[in-house]
Nucleic acid binder design. Structure first.
Length: 496
RNA sequence: GGCCCCAUCGUCUAGUGGCCUAGGACACCACCCUCUCAAGGUGGCGGCACGGGUUCGAAUCCCGUUGGGGCUGCCA
């Protein structure tokens, strides 16, 4: 529930202190239908932080019967690519966010509303809440340096000049001075921003196109967004945007919710460049979407009672925005992997096989797959795969050639490997091809060499599977079949 | 530099003044089980950043310090 008692006091409390320029009431959940939006820009792979933010929005809309708006913010023509747009839809669908899933779902492209953004800028110009500015970056830097302003923002040089429109002039918002803006944030409380620290920011570029701050607000207003849930990196943009809502004569102000960012091991915001954050990559490695969703939700939120691995339906019934933590969380792939292994093990066997087949279809392997043989050892594979992508290495001995590494070979094929293999070949050539018999035979051979099963199985396992670790040996032999098994044993002995 | 946000085991967290000699999970270590590897079981290691207050009593409230992060674009 985003509507805590605190959510109501923001503007009122600030007004009583004479701080806010023109306080407007926040919409009350009881009277105004909840409308949230997720507004990604298609400038790269869709990443885990975005997925988490989308999940928060989705969960809220689902819980409170609200509307989920997906707005693709594709106004940066330079960096946008159509494939990234598709990537967003695909990734969201993968984690269960999309149309027809029990939540009112609206999709927009921000580029379609550019005329509205420009019109809004002109409305502000007409109301003298914005002005044309002729300053170039260089001029500004020069002035800031001369004035000894350490890290200079805009100095208001053209603010009172009343410049008329001219090519290359930008339009800046006239931040009310003096003043303080208090934002009503479900997670942060009521951060106050002194306008002395808020520059007159750019609304329209020199080429006339709208900037993010403006476009974002105009769209949120026209789409009737009531609750803005986004990453904390936007917190300092909020006073500017709230000022815009007010200057544009919005009938209400949205409630904000700035969720903590996800960080890497160095505790820096996850970056698409350096960190493994692409949802697509996790899907390719064979993570289950339910594990990913579960893990992502637990980063910054907990249902209490020490619960971690849980049904998504439980998350849906328990999630509450004001329980979201306010500190950054480390995206720990190791724990994600552990979650995924848990989810894989919990799958009914038939579904496990089905999921594997789906993954396999998307990731062709260099061997001829046989579903019947896989089915025979599926239970053992299921226990050993942390991600679906682990499976090929566990079962490839059934479908392709075995190629042991030199290190493994040297370790397993020490004397009396030759004698052992010879005995095993003789035995397995003739004995009944039964799991228990195969085991008893090898145990018997071990006895003659004074070796326990644990020791004597090594050369056999390596000859059969090409590896020193893997599913139980006798089950593997059984599935492989006598002909291929004995053939591999002979090939190994020949190589000694 | 300025502004803003944040602060419980290595990590994710439970905890909303007494139930806390701080609980769980991941990771790590040991042991058990065992045909290898897993899985499973048992146990262990390990934390309230620091300093002041408030209070009979503070991980929990307040202030400060320190540390970390975000923002500071004619990107979004």
């Amino acid at each position: 529930m985003f509507q805590s008692d605190r959510a109501q006091v923001g503007p009122e409390c600030a007004a009583s202190l004479g701080l806010v320029m023109s306080p407007l009431p926040s919409p009350s959940a009881s009277e105004t239908p909840l409308r949230v939006r997720f507004a990604p820009s298609p400038t790269g792979f869709f990443h885990v932080g975005g997925a988490r933010t989308a999940l928060y929005n989705w969960l809220l809309a689902k819980r409170l019967g609200g509307t989920f708006i997906l707005r693709i913010e594709d106004t940066d023509a330079e960096r946008n690519r159509e494939e990234w747009v598709q990537g967003i839809h695909d990734a969201l669908a993968w984690i269960g966010i999309g149309p027809g899933l029990g939540v009112d779902y609206e999709v927009y492209r921000q580029s379609e509303f550019e005329v509205d953004h420009v019109r809004a800028a002109h409305q502000l110009l007409g109301a003298r809440r914005a002005y044309y500015c002729a300053c170039t970056r260089e001029q500004l830097d020069t002035r800031n340096e001369a004035a000894g302003r350490k890290q200079g923002g805009y100095d208001g040089h053209c603010r009172e000049k009343g410049l008329a429109v001219a090519p290359a002039y930008v339009v800046r918002f006239k931040v009310p001075r003096p003043g303080v803006t208090v934002v009503n944030d479900v997670i942060r409380g009521e951060p106050a921003f002194d306008h002395a620290n808020v520059d007159d920011f750019v609304l329209l570029r020199g080429n006339g196109t709208p900037m993010f701050l403006l476009a974002n607000v105009v769209d949120d207003m026209s789409m009737g967004v009531t609750l803005v849930i986004r990453a904390e990196e936007h917190l300092t943009n909020t006073p500017k945007q709230q000022l815009l809502w007010q200057a544009l004569d919005a009938p209400y102000l949205p409630t904000w919710a700035h969720v903590p960012v996800l960080v890497n091991e160095k505790r820096q915001k996850l970056s698409k460049r350096r960190d493994p954050v692409a949802m697509e990559m996790y899907r390719d490695e064979g993570y289950l979407p339910e594990a990913m969703k579960n893990y992502l939700m637990l980063l910054g939120w907990s249902p209490g009672n020490d619960a971690e691995i849980m049904e998504w339906s439980l998350v849906e019934s328990l999630f509450s925005l004001d329980e979201v933590n306010s500190s950054p969380a480390f995206f720990d792939v190791k724990k994600l992997r552990a979650f995924n292994a848990d989810y894989i093990r919990a799958l009914p066997q038939a579904e496990f096989v089905e999921r594997w087949h789906e993954w396999l279809a998307a990731h062709p392997q260099p061997w001829e797959y046989r579903a019947d043989q896989f089915g025979d050892i599926a239970p053992f594979v299921q226990l050993r795969a942390e991600v679906l992508g682990d499976i090929p290495a566990v079962v490839d001995f059934l479908f392709g050639d075995v190629t042991p590494s030199d290190a493994d070979w040297d370790k397993a094929m020490k004397p009396p490997a030759d004698a052992i293999l010879t005995s095993v070949i003789d035995s397995y050539d003739a004995c009944s091809w039964d799991i228990d018999v195969l085991k008893a035979e090898l145990e018997h051979i071990g006895d003659t060499h004074g070796l326990k099963l644990g020791k004597i199985q090594a050369p056999v396992r390596l000859a059969i599977t090409g590896k020193l670790v893997g599913p139980p040996l006798f089950e593997s032999l059984h599935v492989l079949g006598r002909e291929r098994a004995v053939g591999r044993l002979k090939a190994a002995r020949a190589r000694l």
